[in-house]
């Protein structure tokens, strides 16, 4: 009697039913602990390091769009106090200069945006300003792309993108910041 029972037990397979539960536990552990970190941001290419400062004084004043941000996060655009909400439109006007005004850029290829901030400027403001300048160019490229090819800039092949960027090159020059307001 006892003998037969042992043999029966030996023939039994290991119960695999709980395997699913174990796997589930592991699965839930991974689901909870891992963060799918999505990283988005404004991609920029910094100028390579050189010891001498680029000389912006040689350029004609009408071709330079100077944006200064002070430690109080105020904006001085070409000598006037400006609101950041007007920055995008004004920058676009400056670059394209549709009315051929004397005080705005000669041509989009000559337009240079000079951005200077203080060491006390908050990063938030800096990024907002940078974002607006970048947005101005993106909008110009978009309008141009729609005018020439009838599609958004994003949907263009690389060759056409290059062509547009050659006509409207994005030149944002950042000067060494002043140091008045760092805490």
């Amino acid at each position: 009697m006892a003998r037969t029972r042992t043999r029966d037990r030996m023939n039994n397979e290991v119960n695999a039913g709980s395997m699913a539960d174990i796997a589930f536990l592991l699965l839930i552990f991974f689901l909870v602990t891992t963060t799918i970190l999505e990283d988005k941001g404004i991609l920029v290419r910094l100028p390579p390091w050189s010891d001498e400062e680029p000389d912006i004084a040689k350029l004609k004043t009408r071709n330079v769009y100077s944006v200064l941000v002070n430690a109080q996060n105020q904006l001085l655009v070409r000598g006037d106090l400006k609101d950041i909400r007007d920055l995008r439109k004004d920058t676009k006007d400056f670059i394209v200069n549709p009315e051929r005004r004397e005080d705005l850029s000669e041509s989009p290829t000559k337009a240079i945006i000079s951005l200077k901030n203080d060491r006390g400027t908050s990063y938030e403001t800096y990024l907002e300003v940078y974002n607006e300048l970048r947005a101005a160019y993106n909008e110009i490229w978009d309008t141009e792309s729609r005018k020439q090819y009838g599609v958004d800039y994003e949907g263009l092949p690389i060759a056409n993108k290059r062509a547009i960027r050659a006509d409207f090159p994005m030149i944002i020059s950042e000067a060494e910041p002043t140091n008045f307001g760092e805490e």
């Binding site: 290419r45 390579p48 390091w49 060491r119």
Partner: peptide, 28 residues
């Protein structure tokens, strides 16, 4: 962090340029 002042960010940018690392993303 948005509240940080530009001084420290500028130092980092300068060091990155000196290190030859020019592709930078301002995470936002």
């Amino acid at each position: 962090d948005g509240k940080v002042t530009m001084g420290i960010v500028q130092d980092v940018k300068t060091s990155l340029r000196k290190a030859g690392q020019v592709k930078v993303n301002y995470s936002a």
